[in-house]
Nucleic acid binder design. Structure first.
Length: 429
RNA sequence: GUGGGUAUAGCGGAGUGGUUACCGCGCAAGAUUGUGGCUCUUGAGAUCGUGGGUUCAAUUCCCACUAUCCACCCCA
């Protein structure tokens, strides 16, 4: 049997209702915060990511779905959302739009990894990007959006961690200080960290090996190496977050895995579990992939949120809404003439915005009632010969068993439905 | 990429080196033939992940592959 490829999932049934629910929460919130949706292609030229995300990152080095198309172009399925948005910003001259440009996206992302719980080869990200402002208000607004989203969903125990990586100057100085500090301790660090020492020493801070953690504990922290401007920016952000009453912690050990970040980086974490949101400032990315001759600066901030992970957490915490039935009324039948009439009525009701269902399997009345019950239909009505003769039928409230007589027309049924306890509209908020 | 566990019906679980492989949920039909949920009866549905090997005999033991889960790496 052909199965879905490794690390991919089919989303259907009650699962897909949860996705729709989450997506509508996200869309409403983005409307509220003034972010417009952008849909960029699922694949891009490989160069966009190798240049943007960074040639030396794990994502680019070993996780991308890259192939040559029939025109022998190197194509890559997007491993993250920001690259495509930055590309589109340049391509469509969005620097001429009112600044800053605020965009959000919902998109599948692809990374060739070994799948695990909460880690897939095709996962889905919600992300926001504010492009065009260097001010710390941008980080504050974006963090506030993420915070409000998780709050609205009822998720508890989320922690916001922030850090500043400074600019290239601060980071260079810090790297040196870190290497000097580690110098003598290098033999005591794990294999991975020895490898990281030259290539990407900042990652040593993030190591999970206990012995490494211990050594790193007393290491110099990047926040002590920030120059005046970076430091002022970081302090301003903290003040803004406090003003918004968003609890946060500074974690000087947060180092993100994508090369384009500078100054602010942040993560939303459920302790002991996975990162749900990760993001930061990327002031150089837009120019870097744009190769524009102008020296126009296009500073930006964004985050990506793992929707699969978030739904996993919501499910673990029992925070997913119970799916509500969508069927307002079930119209059953007996006999050939009833069958025809039922179809006509269902169609007429649907044209009037009533969710009506009927039999599609030529079943008996009893089986039809069972089916109506399984659908969660709020009302039912059966059309037989008597009903056709008198043009009257019995409308039954499936919950209260109350019965009302009604004429066999869509208008009359709708009117009678109005007499009965109002059926709740079963759509997700 | 590294290390470990698991693989039995649509789903969740039991089980055995030897005739027709169980149970629950779900699905379907019925319980004096025009009305659901509870209960009861019956039925459909599984080449026991795939391919090899050991054996008179393998779903069961061994190996490989694949998938899945867990811990790393990394990330959302």
């Amino acid at each position: 049997m052909i199965k879905s490829p490794r690390g991919t999932k089919d989303i259907f049934g009650t699962d897909v209702r949860a996705w729709q629910w989450l997506e509508s929460h996200i869309r409403n919130l983005c409307d509220l915060f003034g972010f417009g949706e952008i849909r960029t292609p699922i694949f891009e030229h490989t160069e966009l990511f190798s240049r943007g995300v960074g040639e030396t990152t794990d994502v680019v080095q070993k996780e991308m779905y890259t192939f040559n198309d029939k025109g022998n172009r190197s194509i890559t399925l997007k491993p993250e959302g920001t690259g495509g948005v930055a590309r589109a910003f340049n391509e469509h001259g969005m620097h001429n739009a009112p600044m800053p440009v605020k965009l959000y996206y919902l998109t599948p992302c692809f990374r060739y990894e070994k799948p695990q719980d909460g880690r897939l080869r095709q996962h889905h990200q919600f992300g926001v990007e504010t492009i065009g402002s260097p001010e710390p208000e941008v980080e504050a607004e974006i963090i506030a959006l993420g915070y409000q989203l998780l709050n609205n969903l009822g998720l508890t125990g989320v922690k916001v961690f922030i850090n500043s990586l400074g600019c290239t100057t601060c980071r260079g100085a810090y790297k040196q200080a870190l290497q000097t500090f580690i110098g003598d301790n290098l033999p005591h660090l794990c294999e991975d960290c020895n490898r990281r020492f030259e290539k990407n020493p900042l990652r040593i801070l993030d190591c999970k090996v206990d012995s490494c953690k211990k050594i790193v504990q007393s290491a110099p922290v990047i926040t002590d190496f920030l120059d005046d401007e970076c430091s002022a920016h970081f302090k301003a952000l903290q003040a803004l977050l406090s003003g918004l009453e968003i609890p946060f912690e500074i974690d000087p050990k947060i180092v993100r895995g994508l090369d384009y970040y500078n100054r602010t980086v942040f993560e939303f974490i459920i302790p002991g579990l996975l990162t749900v949101i990760g993001g930061g400032r990327y002031d150089g990315l837009v120019e870097q992939i744009g190769e524009e001759k102008t020296d126009k600066k296009t500073p930006a901030v964004g985050f990506g949120m793992g929707m699969d992970r978030l739904l996993l957490l919501l499910s673990n915490q029992n925070l997913l809404p119970a799916p509500t039935p969508l069927c307002d009324i079930y119209i059953g039948f007996m006999g050939v003439a009833g069958r025809q009439k039922a179809q006509t009525l269902i169609h007429a009701l649907r044209q009037n915005g009533i969710s009506a269902e009927g039999d599609l399997l030529a079943r008996g009345v009893k089986a039809q009632m069972k089916y109506a019950n399984k659908l969660g239909a709020k009302f039912s009505l059966i059309i037989g010969e008597n009903e056709l003769e008198t043009n009257q039928a019995t409308l039954k409230n499936m919950e209260t068993k109350e019965q009302h007589s009604t004429e066999l027309t869509a208008a009359a049924i709708i009117k009678t439905l109005g007499l009965c306890p109002k059926p709740r509209k079963g759509r997700a908020p």
